[in-house]
């Protein structure tokens, strides 16, 4: 009994010491980690909307992250303000499993008209062959001639993703991300009148 008590005390003391050490580590690194997160979000927004044109992330937006099963893959939704301080777009930061690894995408949605404004695949390791066609920015950003998949301009109610034979895994990853966006958009009643 005495020995068991000693062991329990020893383990508790060890746990307390290491907790203290890790807390010190957390205190020192937490501000840097938070700053990195903010920088990453701003960089992501800057990919789609140029800050020099007055587009910024809404500084008053509450932190939002999603753990719910139906939003699996949705990291965050950023509100982008224009130079007049009004909401210009919502950016969905989504991740889905591609053929070789996670495919990360930013999808900008116009909350007034409910259409996709822009799409960019900012991180993926799909191989430079047919599968990559889904994730090539120059095919899907803005310009009608280059709008290969026709994602931009589609309504968020249902986004039709073109099927490319031989690259079904990447296609499913892209389709899944738009499905999550649609579910979130409807359930959270994101649409803004005006």
């Amino acid at each position: 009994m005495k020995k068991t008590m000693y062991f329990a005390f020893f383990l508790s003391a060890t746990a307390m010491i290491v907790t203290l050490v890790t807390y010190v580590g957390y205190t020192l690194t937490a501000p840097i980690i938070e700053q990195n997160r903010i920088d990453k979000i701003n960089n992501n927004i800057a990919i789609l909307f140029d800050p020099e044109e007055g587009y910024i992330r809404n500084p008053e937006q509450k932190e939002n992250s999603y753990q719910e099963k139906q939003y699996k893959g949705l990291s965050e939704v950023y509100e982008v303000l224009n130079s007049d301080g009004e909401i210009h777009a919502l950016i969905y930061n989504l991740t889905s499993q591609g053929r070789n690894g996670p495919v990360q995408v930013l999808i900008a949605v116009d909350p007034y008209t409910d259409v996709v404004m822009a799409v960019t695949f900012y991180n993926h390791i799909e191989t430079p062959n047919i599968g990559e066609k889904y994730t090539r920015d120059d095919f899907i950003l803005g310009d009608e001639k280059l709008n290969y998949q026709g994602l931009v301009g589609q309504s968020v109610d249902y986004v039709d993703v073109d099927v490319i034979a031989g690259a079904s895994t990447t296609w499913i990853a892209v389709r899944d991300m738009f499905d999550i966006l649609t579910v979130h958009y409807e359930e959270q009643e994101v649409h803004i009148d005006g």
Binding site: G25, I32, I33
Partner: peptide, 9 residues
Amino acid sequence: TLIEYLVNA
């Protein structure tokens, strides 16, 4: 845990 914080930072 400490290494994880460091790599993240």
